[in-house]
Design a protein around this nucleic acid. Sequence first.
DNA 1: ATGAACCCTGACATCATGTCAGGGTCAAGC
DNA 2: GCTTGACCCTGACATGATGTCAGGGTTCAT
Lengths: 148, 148
Amino acid sequence: MNIGQVSKATGVSLRMIRHYEGIGLMPSPDRRDNGYRDYPPRSIERLRFIANARDLGFSVDEISALLSLWDDRERASSEVKAIALGHAEDLARKSAALEAMRRTLLDLAEGCSGDARPDCPILAGLAETRQRPARELTAAKTKPRRVA
Amino acid sequence: MNIGQVSKATGVSLRMIRHYEGIGLMPSPDRRDNGYRDYPPRSIERLRFIANARDLGFSVDEISALLSLWDDRERASSEVKAIALGHAEDLARKSAALEAMRRTLLDLAEGCSGDARPDCPILAGLAETRQRPARELTAAKTKPRRVA
DNA sequence: ATGAACCCTGACATCATGTCAGGGTCAAGC
DNA sequence: GCTTGACCCTGACATGATGTCAGGGTTCAT
């Protein structure tokens, strides 16, 4: 199959199909004499897997892990479940963070008359002091980073 | 004030202070003879405003709008409130989207034994057909883009 | 006058994705 | 055989917020 057909079959853009190949999520397909990528039917399944996982917000690293588990017929389902549940927690955390922002915002907005008068506690609140120190001031010797 | 002092006073990194200047959120400060940026005290307030707004997830465009309203003593508080509430809705939508992903994931995980056995509905679910068409297939004549 | 601490600019990297450019290839119809 | 349109290839640039590194001045306290 040509890449265009694969794209239509999976709903993944040409760009991203090539991209996933570049970053190693998809194996490099054979090439025809003219240089065109020639995909086996299996590719479609794998691409769908990747696309679905992305739609669920999995990171590339997580997808990569899920794919190797998928390729491994013998792995314990507990491994898969652990990744899934871990990601679900991530999602919950992020969602909670957004909710917290929203609450703060609504609290600020509550005091705002929202009419033609100029005084507004929202702006006042935004201008208020903060003290979340800049990275540079704290990160000094803390983190080794670069693990992923 | 030198940029370093402003950074300490606001918790905004040097990098970002310069960046905000570059994208026009902060006015270019005067320069001393040696080329150092020389900030007036007002800058601190404005930077705090920007940083707080960012912490609340406002986009640069929104912040920019809020800043001009802030600069305008006469504007109606309703304008500010509209931006704030609009953003709060954005946050709600995003949060809901994350929650939806989480639910889907938990639904999938529910059927997974999570033990040593290899069969796993999570992987099966991820491999399932999808049909969210790629951008390229739909976007054809839809969007004029490039407004911001 | 030497070194630490500070400042400057510019460039590169991240991540997923789009888009554009410049150039081959293939198939169908004349 | 030649043209045309659809398809493919690679490579590069852009986005947004932020970090980091490099290479090079400045200031100030010892």
